[in-house]
């Protein structure tokens, strides 16, 4: 005789199911516990370490946003306010004027204003800047290095994996805490 094999099977399955559920809940709890051990409430955001940036042009092209979230920023306190700014002018400019053919920036995103003889101030128009780092290269090679790239957090959508970071040749991208989201230059390059 085989009294109600089905109900027995269901009970066995239910027993198995309950056990598995208990194990899974315990496992999830342990995992969450272990991770809270070295996790943080703060989320992180992506930022470029200016000391590691190699000034390629990938920030302009690799961002998931159509207009890259990476822009050139200017640490004015480090700037020499040069009349011949190698971040602003082409090598061999025809003239030291704001005419387009003299400018290094492909989108004319750097505004050059006269302050006092012989000093000029350079400001980045972030709406125009594409993050190509041409000016950064010029400024770092011949100048103080006061121009550098940063992820602008009013634009960045904070992808779980930054798609510029994948292609960054200098390995310059890293996650920083959200309450200190910038790695600004405070001393001159070199």
């Amino acid at each position: 005789m085989n009294p109600s094999p089905r109900s027995e099977a269901v009970t066995r399955r239910q027993f198995f199911r309950n056990g598995a559920r208990l194990a899974a809940v315990t496992g999830l709890g342990t995992l969450a516990g272990v991770l809270t051990g070295h996790s943080q409430a703060k989320t992180t955001v992506w930022q470029i370490d200016p000391a590691k940036c190699l000034r390629c042009d990938r920030c302009a092209t690799h961002c998931v946003l159509e207009q890259s979230a990476v822009k050139c920023v200017h640490a004015h306190a480090l700037c020499g306010y040069c009349q011949l700014c190698t971040g602003y002018f082409n090598p061999e400019p025809n003239d030291l004027t704001t005419a387009a053919e003299n400018q290094l920036c492909p989108t004319a995103a750097i505004q050059r204003t006269f302050v006092e003889d012989p000093y000029y101030e350079y400001n980045i128009d972030e709406k125009l800047c594409i993050g190509c780092a041409k000016c950064v290269e010029g400024c770092n090679r011949f100048g103080n290095g006061s121009l550098f790239l940063q992820v602008r957090h009013d634009r960045c959508v904070n992808c779980n994996e930054c798609s510029i970071a994948i292609g960054c040749p200098g390995d310059a991208f890293r996650r920083v805490p959200v309450d200190q989201p910038y790695l600004l230059k405070t001393t001159h390059a070199h």
Binding site: H74, H76, L78, V115, E116, N123, N144, D154, L184, H190
Partner: peptide, 30 residues
Amino acid sequence: EPRFPPPDFSETNHRIPVTTTPGARALWLQ
């Protein structure tokens, strides 16, 4: 020292701008 030391703007008293740092999304929103 930097290659080109920042000027002190003694003639015009020009104030050197501070680098802007627009914040990331507020923490409480997380």
